[in-house]
């Protein structure tokens, strides 16, 4: 039997969850024995080259590109997992959700104390740029998500245990130390 194929991405996140994946240390050698990676920053494959079994999503959706990537993952992965606070609830980026987007943009590009020179009061508007959403959305509001791994970031062991459980079909080990948050 061929190895299960895993894809990962970071949407509106900080890559902290991906760092946590790398935190499994020497187990990374076991990991590449266990699974094959496709689209992922880990192997730098930019587009899906085949259908995947598991998609790990870090971060929520703050712009139109996040939405496209997430929908692409849903199309190409049998199982999608929201990894970490931002994917599950929006996380830190969602702090802007109570503020109208125009106010956010004005503060960032026109009126903010760090704005040095913008005499024409331009807010970036190139067509190449992703369009910002009115608020940051958790992934499950955009596509169906099958599993959730909580944490900021989820501990390396939790991600590892979850992957192993998904691949082997065994029950997920959830010792207290892995899911306590204080």
């Amino acid at each position: 039997m061929s190895k299960p194929i895993v894809a990962t991405t970071s949407l509106a996140g900080c890559f902290g969850c991906h760092m946590s994946i790398l935190d499994i240390d020497e187990k990374i050698l076991d990991l590449i024995e266990l699974v094959e990676f496709n689209k992922s920053p880990i192997d730098d494959i930019k587009t899906f080259t085949k259908k995947c079994d598991i998609g790990l999503i870090e971060g929520g959706c703050c712009n139109s590109e996040n939405i496209h990537v997430l929908k692409d993952f849903r199309k190409n992965c049998k199982i999608l997992v929201s990894v970490g606070e931002c994917a599950i609830m929006g996380g830190l980026p969602a702090l802007r959700n109570g503020i109208p987007i125009k106010e956010c943009l004005d503060e960032a590009y026109i009126n903010g104390p760090s704005v040095q020179h913008n005499p024409k009061g331009i807010i970036p508007n190139d067509d190449e740029l992703p369009m910002l959403l009115d608020r940051v959305y958790p992934c499950h509001e955009i596509v169906k998500i099958d599993y959730y791994l909580p944490g900021c970031p989820p501990r390396a062991e939790l991600i590892w245990n979850a992957l192993v459980a998904l691949v082997t079909g065994d029950e997920l080990k959830l010792p207290y130390e892995v899911v306590k948050f204080d």
């Binding site: 987007i101 125009k102 004005d106 807010i123 508007n125 910002l132 959403l133």
Partner: peptide, 21 residues
């Protein structure tokens, strides 16, 4: 999903003066 892309990007596109794609 109750997500509506057109509605979600409307305000930011208006603020930046661009036409939603």
């Amino acid at each position: 999903t109750e997500f509506d892309m057109a509605a979600a990007v409307k305000a930011s596109c208006e603020a930046a003066g661009r036409i939603p794609n």
